[in-house]
Design a protein around this nucleic acid. Sequence first.
DNA 1: CAAATTTGACCAGT
DNA 2: ACTGGTCAAATTTG
Length: 199
Amino acid sequence: MGNTDLPPDDNYTWRKYGQKEILGSKYPRAYYRCTHQKMYNCPAKKQVQRLDNDFYTFEVTYIGQHTCTMSSTAPSIPQPPPLLHDQMVMTQAMVSQPALPPTSSSTTSSSIVPSGSWLSMEFSLGSGSGGRGSGGAGSSSGGGPATGSRYGRDVQYSVVADMADVMFNSGSSSSNSMDFIFPCAEDKWEAPGSGDKKH
DNA sequence: CAAATTTGACCAGT
DNA sequence: ACTGGTCAAATTTG
């Protein structure tokens, strides 16, 4: 079938630990967790759900951070357990092109690129404001939002810095790991001066 | 053989 | 009561 493979797994491997159908979505949602890191208490979790509107658009929701990024090896990391309400949730929408027909099999290969483009990503904090609707994928392309009943939330740009602060606030770590996770996100987060929004 | 994946059931929260 | 989420067991693949 299509390709259920995302470009680089972010840098970490994920082990699927469940799948459930979501009301309102035509496709089930897959729950992923760290493969080897769960053993270390890595709270990093990932959710993958394909939008019912765009079969090629994958909504990846990242919850928690990777604690295995550091030295790991030992779960003796100073990471308090209290983390059940104010977690960060970033959702990335990836769209792959439907191109990938049966045409031959290998050999063809012509695309080194991972047939996939990250359209937009939205991050939301537990106590912030939902973020959906950036001039990116939120508005579907060509099609109409149709069922867009969910997601319809406020469109407010929280403080990115805040997020980073919260993210690494309770720990030590530096504060650049985010770059590692979202290398090409800096630009997309804040619009270059222009209010998108609806007229 | 080990690891990863699958499906179902159970649990918790709303 | 329903939905959503997680865990557990069984199975499959490498």
